[in-house]
């Protein structure tokens, strides 16, 4: 479970999140949508404890992570897998070292055992074993994103997955590949997931429930039917370019 209670956050004197509240039950996936700069990545940073809210509480499972000791925070982070915006792969390390990063750093496993796990993971995220010794720079954007997902998964079997714009900048077929990988994970591993995106079409493929953020405030929290009926002018404005895809989703659901 992930819960935000009246969370406010600012960079210096620039407010980024204002009085934000939402709750995601264990095992569910939620899409957070919003324009660029609305504060989506900041929400994920707060969940990871990379930044602390100025006000309010953040609960992960049953722990309030605001004000816990660094050691507790580290334990909580072990249960969270994060796919950073643009991957944030370690660019001086090979693909294999990236995916095996957690095990290389924290486990006493032998090198060849880690190699075995890394190969398995490459297969799971749909990449060939040949790229294991390549550097991230030598891969396409879509492949990098897969490596980032693999790296997040090979930590300690995360119970929570956070994806920051996993499809941005990818061509449509690659994007839909990534989306089905995310779907497979959510269903197969029963993880609680947050997928951040500003692409509505993607959002509908992943989850039935959405949160829409505008300038750091939550302006919508509900399912697609509610989203279609919402009459808040900011939501209508936000959805305008995507009328067709929403209509399509509705149609598919009737069939």
């Amino acid at each position: 479970m992930i819960e935000f209670r009246n969370v406010s956050f600012s960079y210096g004197d620039k407010p980024v999140l204002e009085n934000l509240s939402f709750r995601i039950p264990t095992g569910e996936a939620r899409v957070i949508m919003g324009q660029s700069g609305s504060g989506k990545s900041t929400i994920l940073r707060l969940i990871l404890g990379l930044a602390k809210p100025d006000e309010g509480d953040i609960l992960i499972e049953d722990t309030n992570i605001c004000g816990v000791r660094p050691r507790v925070l580290r334990e909580i982070r072990k249960r969270i897998g994060m796919v950073f915006q643009d991957g944030a792969l370690f660019d001086s390390m090979t693909v294999g070292e990236n995916i095996g990063y957690y095990l290389l750093e924290h486990s006493k496993m032998r090198f060849d055992e880690i190699g075995e796990k890394v190969r398995e993971m490459l297969g799971f995220v749909g990449l060939s074993e040949d790229i294991i010794d390549k550097l991230p720079d030598e891969l396409s954007g879509g492949m990098q994103r897969r490596v980032a997902i693999g790296r997040a998964l090979l930590s300690t079997d995360p119970k929570i997955m956070l994806y920051d714009e996993p499809t941005t900048g990818l061509d449509p077929s690659m994007a839909s590949n990534i989306l089905s990988l995310i779907n497979r994970l959510t269903e197969f591993k029963k993880v609680t997931s947050i997928i951040v995106t500003h692409q509505i079409a993607d959002a509908f493929e992943i989850s039935k429930k959405f949160i829409v953020i505008d300038s750091g405030k939550s302006i919508f929290d509900g399912d697609i039917t509610q989203l279609r009926q919402a009459d808040d002018s900011r939501i209508v404005e936000f959805l305008k370019p995507f009328r067709d895809s929403i209509a399509n989703v509705q149609k598919n659901e009737f069939i």
């Binding site: 990379l50 982070r77 950073f84 370690f90």
Partner: peptide, 16 residues
Amino acid sequence: SMKSSKQLDAMVAFGI
């Protein structure tokens, strides 16, 4: 440049 490409955040997220 590791900071600007969020690699430092990634390290922290991996407990380093």
